[in-house]
């Protein structure tokens, strides 16, 4: 199960970023609220680094109203394409699993 989560949580991040840019702590809170994280919150950082080196997300620093500056993550065009591809494959896959689970 944790394997499945690990493979999909990256796309959950892309989906959140598709709505608007987020800073990391914000992303972690939203994912944790949906219990979408496979392991401790800290494991999001290696994932975010990989999404960035794959060119799916971009980052920039912004001042925070209270406290140190924050690194904001936003979706790139490549990330948007990757998210759309996943969305259609996931729909088919989850439909198939749902059907099999009901038998």
């Amino acid at each position: 199960m944790s394997q499945l989560r690990r493979g999909t949580v990256g796309f959950c991040v892309l989906a959140l970023l598709n709505a608007r840019e987020h800073y990391a702590v914000e992303l972690v809170r939203e994912l944790a609220a949906h219990q979408a994280l496979a392991a401790g919150q800290g494991t999001i950082y290696p994932l975010l680094s990989r999404l960035r080196s794959d060119g799916l997300v971009a980052t920039h620093w912004k001042e925070s109203p209270n406290g140190p500056p924050r690194r904001y993550y936003s979706l790139t065009d490549e990330g948007r394409g990757s998210l759309e591809l996943f969305r259609s494959e996931w729909t088919q896959f989850s439909d198939a699993v749902d059907t099999l689970m009901k038998t």
Partner: peptide, 13 residues
């Protein structure tokens, strides 16, 4: 605690 153990994060990396 919520962050997880340092060893777990290093393993994820």
């Amino acid at each position: 605690d919520e962050l997880g153990t340092p060893e777990e994060i290093a393993a994820a990396a």
